[in-house]
Design a protein around this nucleic acid. Structure first.
Length: 719
DNA sequence: AGCACGCCGACT
DNA sequence: GTCGGCGTGCTC
């Protein structure tokens, strides 16, 4: 009897044996449906055997084999590496590689079809097709006389459905819209040199493409991709966020009109994701563009991996299997013997250190690609002096007003949504805390609510202080809502819009505001870091940054580099097309090294300083760390578990050069009703840490109790 | 991860 | 006397 050994998506380490019915074939890597207890699960066949250790009468059959490409051997090996490296069960890792298992065949994407309006674009939307969303989409596209794949790529799921229904209803007709000629940009000398380095790489070659904002990193990636695709290879292109993929996709399609590109991210419908996965697995998709989960896509003809904005924190998964997609990409590049290009204007200190040390090849783009465009001037406004109007200094207001008067556009950036980050009693000092988290509640004035941004708790704004009964409760600090109001009253003629998670919740809303800003219907955009990435706005000449100091107060060891990266990104938004740009930074610390470096557009000096600090403090990347995180409803259970974990670590340490730290509360000591704690294990050399972790984890598993949820985070993003 | 089985406190 | 709390262990 043929026995298959199946990895199932459960936290346990062991494999489960099932027998394979006669005539059924399920090679290694096959995705199968089996029963475990009462549940039906999808698992991955990782081995075959003639018999099983398990008593034959207890064995169940494989119930079905999914009609998908089996996971190829290199992906099974990748999963095994990720499982070992990140201390996660193999079955949980493999679950990341399995596409959504829909019923039946995946829906075919109609997105590649260009269409033309059957009648001129001003046509009324037929009455039977009218709905609020349909009308909104109609307004967006009514002035166009055809819909190219590039426009299509900007549609969200709902819009695609409307679009298909319109085609079906005959209101739009497929037409042979000529494929746009590739928007080929001439590469400057630095870009050409970088491209040459990528193309001449043989085998695994990690490279850091360090290019200032606007230096044309994308043009380099895509030119390289074009060549690898022309040679019959597949290119994996990883980008940080879902928001970015449609824009990036449009750009890929514009630059490489002949290549078949698919997107792979969690925002896709199951059928689409499955279709994209199949296209990758079959080799049909020449370019796979996606967020971190795309690093696990099957790519039989993989020739190049690009990680764009490699420093971005969203490449690190924060729950479940805590992998870092950039690091997995590097492993994959080594495994498959292909170049890996890490691109950033503000590389992670990890990558920077490797590039400086010669382990990665350094490719530099020191100038903006557009020779007319200069880096913006950065002006500091000392928040501790001068008059302010609702958080906005006179200088800031003057600059905004002048900018709008010139017919140019401005972006006001504050990394806090809501009206105010705190609600405070001026009589006794009480402030509103979340009952389930160790954080203050944010004032949402429109909704007349206090909200927790971590657990979703919401309550009505109290009219009086629950401690002393005083009614002098006031919002303290500034969020996007408050700033929007302040600007509206200070600059009554300016057209202002706000972009944050609250305003763009509806699908397509972000694209809508972006289009309106781009079209000149908005003068000032107020928003969170959502605005920091993505689109270039040619008439955007002024960037104002408020509240950046808050991030510096964070206890997280990466706070400074994060603030810097964000600043560089936002500042880089200003003045991209010939018009000179300016950035204003309102701060209490105008001499902070991170701010000074941002003003000089000088990444290298700051990075080198930070690396020295990390070295002195024995923090990553000078050392390698793993964090044990524990949470429970009862603080005592957390403490007891971590104390026991520490004892355990002391015993397991034998022979490994690792340092064990004492348990401490997590950076957020309580979240969603769970008390949280953590402890750190540190090693000077990675192999020592990797040698220690499996033994420790095995020990922890025997001591754990169901009251305490715990996880080991290898290379944690913060601690 | 579920989900049953099994052992100690407050109820119709 | 039972109902049900969760702590422990198993699932091929």
């Amino acid at each position: 009897m043929t026995i298959t050994r199946v990895a199932l998506p459960i936290a346990a380490e062991q494999l489960f044996d099932y027998w394979l019915p006669a005539g059924v074939d399920a090679p290694d890597g096959s995705i199968v449906r089996v029963r475990l207890g009462h549940r039906r699960l999808a698992g991955v066949v990782v081995a075959h055997a003639i018999g099983s250790e398990v008593e034959q009468s207890r064995l169940l059959p494989v119930e079905a084999v999914e009609p998908l490409h089996p996971l190829p051997a290199d992906l099974l090996e990748l999963a095994s590496f990720v499982s070992r490296y990140y201390q996660a069960a193999l079955g949980m890792v493999l679950a990341l590689l399995v596409p959504p298992l829909g019923a039946g065949a995946a829906a075919r994407r109609s997105d590649d079809v260009a269409v033309r309006f059957t009648e001129p674009g001003r046509t009324q939307l037929p009455a039977r097709l009218r709905s609020a969303q349909a009308i909104a989409l109609h307004q967006r596209i009514v002035q166009l006389d055809s819909i190219s794949p590039i426009v299509l790529a900007t549609f969200d799921e709902a819009e695609r459905r409307f679009f298909r229904s319109w085609v079906k209803a005959g209101w739009l007709a497929p037409a042979a819209v000529p494929v746009d000629a590739p928007t080929r940009v001439a590469l400057n000398a630095a870009q050409a040199q970088a491209l040459d380095a990528i193309l001449s790489a043989r085998g695994f070659a990690p490279m850091l493409l360090h290019g200032v904002t606007g230096s044309g990193k994308t043009a380099v990636y895509l030119a390289a991709a074009e060549r690898f695709v022309a040679d019959g290879g597949q290119v994996l292109l990883l980008v940080p966020e879902i928001n970015l993929t449609p824009q990036f996709e449009a750009r890929v399609r514009a630059m490489l009109p002949g290549a078949s590109a698919v997107s792979l991210h969690s925002g896709l419908a199951d059928g689409e994701r499955r279709a994209a996965w199949e296209a990758a697995a079959s080799g049909r998709a020449a370019i796979v563009l996606g967020t971190r989960l795309a690093v696990f896509a099957p790519l039989p003809k993989l020739a190049l991996i690009v990680v764009d904005e490699e420093h971005d924190g969203s490449f690190k998964q924060q729950d479940g299997v805590r992998y870092h997609a950039r690091d997995v990409a590097l492993f994959r590049g080594r495994q498959r013997g292909v170049p890996v290009v890490l691109g950033s204007a503000t590389p992670s200190l990890e990558s920077w250190a490797h590039a400086r040390g010669g382990r990665y090849r350094m490719l530099a783009l020191p100038e903006r690609a557009d020779p007319q465009s200069r880096m913006p001037d950065v002006r500091f406004v000392d928040d501790r002096e001068g008059r302010k109007r609702e958080g906005l200094s006179d200088a800031t207001l003057q600059a905004l007003s002048a900018c709008v008067a010139r017919g140019e556009q401005a972006l006001v950036f504050i990394n806090r949504r809501g009206y105010a980050p705190s609600y405070k009693c001026w009589s006794c000092g009480w402030d509103a805390q979340c009952p389930r988290c160790a954080v203050r509640l944010t004032v949402h004035r429109d909704a007349r609510q206090l909200r927790c941004h971590h657990c979703g708790h919401a309550q009505r704004l109290p009219g009086a202080c629950p401690e002393c009964g005083n009614v002098d409760l006031l919002p303290q600090g500034f969020g996007t809502q408050r700033l929007e109001r302040a600007l509206a009253s200070a600059l009554p003629t300016a057209r202002i819009a706000r972009v944050d998670r609250d305003t763009v919740r509806a699908r397509g809303a972000f694209a809508d505001v972006r289009d309106r800003f781009e079209g000149g219907a908005i003068d000032i955009l107020v928003g969170t870091q959502m605005l920091a990435k993505g689109h270039d706005f040619p008439r955007l000449t002024l960037v104002v940054v408020l509240g950046a100091d808050n991030a510096l107060y964070s206890a997280d060891f990466r706070a400074t580099e994060r603030v810097f990266a964000l600043l560089m990104q936002v500042i880089g938004r200003a003045g991209r097309a010939g018009l000179p740009g300016e950035a204003i930074l309102q701060t209490d610390f105008p001499h902070h090294p991170a701010y000074r470096a941002a003003a000089r557009h000088d990444y290298a000096t700051l990075a080198n300083t930070l690396l020295e600090e990390r070295n002195d403090a024995r923090l990553p990347p000078a050392t390698h760390v793993a964090l044990l995180e524990a949470q429970a409803h009862d603080r005592a259970h957390v403490d007891a578990f971590l104390a026991s974990a520490r004892d355990c670590a002391m015993q397991c340490r034998a022979g490994c050069e690792v340092e064990i730290f004492a348990p401490v509360p997590a950076l957020m000591a309580k979240r969603a009703g769970f008390e949280r704690g953590q402890m750190l294990v540190q090693a000077n050399r990675r192999p020592e840490l990797q040698r220690f972790l499996p033994a420790w984890r095995a020990q922890l598993a025997t001591r754990s109790s169901s009251r305490v949820r715990w996880a080991i985070d290898v290379d944690p993003a913060s601690f």
